[in-house]
Design a protein around this nucleic acid. Structure first.
Lengths: 197, 197
DNA sequence: CTGGAAAATGAATAGGTATTCAGTACCATA
DNA sequence: TATGGTACTGAATACCTATTCATTTTCCAG
């Protein structure tokens, strides 16, 4: 019971932080305002997080965990590099497009300092890039993709396309669905890597 | 003379800010430390800039101005959408790769809040995206590029690739030259848009 | 019931820095 | 040399908020 309630409290703090930081930005969001929204006292935050920055890190880790879980589930048992790449595009746009507050944080607030971005980039996003590169390598080996590709470089390019689509969506105020772009984006991405034809 | 010296001072402040912000991040960089490096008093900063944030804006505007000037000069008199796109890739990577401090700012520090990024994105980067979209539209019209492309979307994709390459270079500590990737990146980008073949 | 550990509270602290402004230095002109 | 205006200075101000910790509340084992 105690365990249960604690877990809930930590979740509540992360949820509150997501909303507030998305709305006002990391630096404009005070710990006090997160606490108020979460329904806890200021000091309680520090029973669950070492400091304010750790809230941001935890936020991202929680989100990426869910992201990767769904991704692996989806790619499981799928064969063919092109299909896998299609699935990645679709999943990326769908998941980012699912929660605008979270998207604001991942696309904007999380990138606010070199130190921070380096940390994230190496530890977390690196794994995601590796998966994409792996799929591309598979396609190169099978002949579906161009033989002269550098899978790592091409993987970054694919990520760059997806990331830009996500950022653009966050910055545009219109109420479009991000995943609506998936078919077109898939064509662009496959064009980059597929064997001529 | 007075004019000349003032211009110099403003430039010195921007140069100093570039170095300090690249090294310590926007929020960790105090106005005092920028002033010291520029060789002026703290208060002098406020004779040239309304506030600290305006330093960052000016920094970016100065850089983008130079960027676009070189770009237009380069594209001038060039014909053929594919060649123009090649030139854009080359120029983008070359210019970003020329000054690592500035690159840290454009790729990282400038993106630290939604408000800020929106402002930049709409007012400044929008013009750059429009140029890329224009080139793609030209290629579609001439048949060099795929007929079913949406030039605006494809333009964002191209920008996404270039931006990711730049960010990746900034985060990698190795001393590679960013423009060394230009040929490979060009192939990827052309693959996205070029007619099958 | 009850004693005490664990969890939670929120007012006080401690540290930090953007911005101001009263004063100083400089310079052109008469 | 005197005068007035402009540029510059940097110490003082004014404000802000992350974090701590003495106290209170909650919870459950005995």
């Amino acid at each position: 019971m105690a365990r249960r309630s604690s877990e809930d409290k930590k979740e509540r703090i992360l949820d509150a932080a997501t909303v507030e930081i998305a709305r006002h930005g990391y630096h404009q969001t005070t710990v006090a305002v997160i606490a108020r929204r979460a329904g806890v006292a200021d000091g309680t935050i520090y029973l669950y997080f070492k400091n304010k920055e750790e809230i941001l890190v935890s936020l991202f880790e929680r989100a990426l965990g869910r992201f990767i879980a769904k991704g692996q589930e989806q790619l499981e048992g799928m064969t063919g590099a092109a299909d896998k790449l299609r699935a990645i595009v679709d999943l990326h746009l769908t998941l980012v497009g699912q929660d605008r507050d979270l998207a604001i944080i991942t696309q904007v607030e999380l990138r606010h300092s070199l130190h921070f971005l380096e940390e994230l980039s190496r530890a977390q996003v690196g794994g995601y890039l590796a998966i994409i590169a792996q799929v591309i390598a598979e396609g190169v080996a099978s002949g579906q993709f161009r033989a002269d590709l550098d899978p790592v470089l091409a993987g970054k390019a694919v990520f760059g396309v997806l990331d830009e689509m996500a950022t653009d969506w966050v910055l545009s105020r219109r109420n479009t669905r991000l995943e609506a772009k998936a078919p077109e984006v898939t064509e662009l991405v496959l064009g980059m890597v597929a064997s001529g034809g």
